[in-house]
Design a protein around this nucleic acid. Structure first.
Lengths: 234, 234
DNA sequence: TACTCACTCGTACACTGTGCGAGCCCGGCT
DNA sequence: AGCCGGGCTCGCACAGTGTACGAGTGAGTA
C-alpha cells in the first residue's frame, strides 16, 4: 500500500543515470499511444507493446512501474494536447474554447473514456490545464472559490459529453458495422420502442439520425447554457 | 459482427421455457452487482461469480451471452435505482433532483465509471430515465429539441462529476490508505507544487481539504449554473 | 583487470474469458 | 415402457493477460 503521491510516476525521475539505453520512457509512451489510438484499450498489452518496440515485454518494466503507471502517462500525454489559450479579454470565448478542445481531444483518443473513472488525473499536463482554466476565470472576475468550481463544471461537462460520445464510437468499432448502418439500426430500434419511449424517437417527420452531429450540438447547447449561467454570476 | 440492436440482451426473452433451473439471469445480475459493489470492477470474474452462486463458471453462459452482456445488465440495474420524480410544477427542482440522484447512484456503484465510456447505455431503465427527463423539461415549456439537449446536458454534468469523483474513490480503495491520510498526502503534494500550480493549492490559510465535500459543492455549483442557464431560455 | 550497475529478456505463475462437448434430468411421444 | 429432445450444468482446454524473478550483457569507473 504505497502512497501514490509520494514517489509517483510524476515525481520520480524519468531516467536516473546516463548511457544510451535501447528503450526510453517517452518512446514507450509514444508507442503505447499509437497502439491505443489504433486499436483501443484492448489493443494495448505489454507483450504487444514490447513487440512494437522491438524489445522484450518485460523490459518495459524497467522504465515504468507497471501498466497502470504507463496508462497514467498516456492519459497525461493526451491531456497535453489540449490547447491553452493566450490570455484574452473575452473569458467566455476562451473558456468555451478550452471546453470544446478538451472534448475533442478526449474523443480523438476515445480509449481514454474507459480510464477516466478509474484513475485520478494528476499528471503535470492535467494540472496545468486545470490551473490555466482557473486562472482564466479568476481574471474574468470570479472569486477564487467560484473560479475553481466553474472550471470543474466546464470540464465535467466536456468529460461527460465526451464519455457518452466515446461509448457510441467504441460500440461502432466493436460491432464491425459501418457507423451509418448501426445508426439505421438504432433509429429502427427507437422507432420500434416508440410506444414505450415516445420522446426518444424523433417521430415520423424527423430528419435522418446523425449521431455524431447530434452529440456535438447537444454538447454545444449545454456548454452555452452553462456559460450563460456562469456569466450571470458576474 | 452482429447487430447489437437486433437481438440484444434487452429484447431477447429472459427465459424461453419453463422448469426450475438452478440459475436465473436476475440472480446472476444480483450476485454480480454484489461483487462489483464490494470489490470494484476487478472483483468480478466469471469464476468468482460462479463460486458465489455455487455453480460452475461456465454455467453462467447459458443465461448471458458473455461478460459484456452481463455488465450491460448490471449497468441498467444501477440506472434503475435513480428515482423518477412525480410530475410537479417546479421543473427546476425536479430536474435538479434527478441530476443529483443520478450522481449519487453512480457514486454508490463507482465501478460503473470504468464502463460508461465503453458501452452505450440503452437498457430499459436508462431509456426510461432519459424519457422522463425529457418529458419533464418538455412540460416545463422547452421545445422538443431543447428538452432533449437539456436532458443530455444535465446527465452529462452528473456523469462528468460522478466520474471524476469515482476516480478519486477507487484511488483511495486501491491505495489501501484511509481517505484522510491520502487526502493529507494530496494536500502536501499540492502545497509542494504550489509554485508550478498556485491556484490548485488553497494557500496557507485554507481550511483542511475535504475532498468528498469539495466534490459535492463543486457539482452543486455547476448544476445550479446549468439550471440558471436553462431557466433563462424560458 | 575487476567490479558495479543500468538495462534487457526468457521463463514461470496465477489468473482471465469463453468454445466445446459430455452429461444430467424431465416432459412428451410412440 | 422405451425413447427422444432439449433446457441446463459443468469440466476441460486454449490462448491470452500482467508481472515477479533471476540470469545475462555491456559499458564505465576504480
Amino acid at each position: 500500500m504505497p502512497d501514490p503521491f509520494e514517489r509517483s510516476v510524476w515525481t520520480r525521475p524519468a531516467r536516473p543515470r546516463s548511457g544510451t539505453p535501447a528503450l526510453s520512457r517517452d518512446q514507450i509512451v509514444k508507442a503505447a499511444l499509437e497502439l491505443l489510438d489504433a486499436e483501443g484499450i484492448d489493443g494495448l498489452s505489454m507483450r504487444r507493446l514490447g513487440a512494437k518496440l522491438g524489445s522484450g515485454a518485460t523490459s518495459i518494466y524497467w522504465h515504468v512501474a507497471n501498466k497502470d503507471d504507463l496508462l497514467d502517462l498516456a492519459i497525461d500525454a493526451v491531456m497535453g494536447e489540449v490547447r491553452i489559450p493566450d490570455p484574452v479579454d473575452d473569458w467566455r470565448a476562451a473558456a468555451g474554447a478550452m471546453a470544446r478542445d478538451l472534448r475533442e481531444v478526449l474523443l480523438r483518443h476515445s480509449w481514454i473514456a474507459s480510464l477516466f473513472g478509474v484513475r485520478p488525473n494528476v499528471g503535470p499536463n492535467s494540472m496545468a490545464l486545470a490551473e490555466s482554466m482557473i486562472t482564466l476565470l479568476d481574471r474574468a472576475g470570479f472569486s477564487q472559490a467560484e473560479a475553481t468550481y466553474a472550471a470543474s463544471a466546464l470540464s465535467s461537462h466536456a468529460i461527460g459529453a465526451a464519455i457518452t460520445a466515446a461509448a457510441w464510437h467504441t460500440a461502432v468499432a466493436r460491432s464491425g458495422m459501418t457507423e451509418a448502418d448501426l445508426t439505421k439500426s438504432v433509429a429502427a430500434f427507437l422507432e420500434e420502442q416508440r410506444e414505450a419511449y415516445p420522446r426518444l424517437d424523433g417521430g415520423p417527420g424527423a430528419p435522418p439520425l446523425d449521431i455524431r452531429a447530434l452529440q456535438e450540438t447537444t454538447f454545444e447547447y449545454g456548454l452555452e447554457r452553462l456559460l450563460d449561467g456562469l456569466a450571470a454570476r458576474l
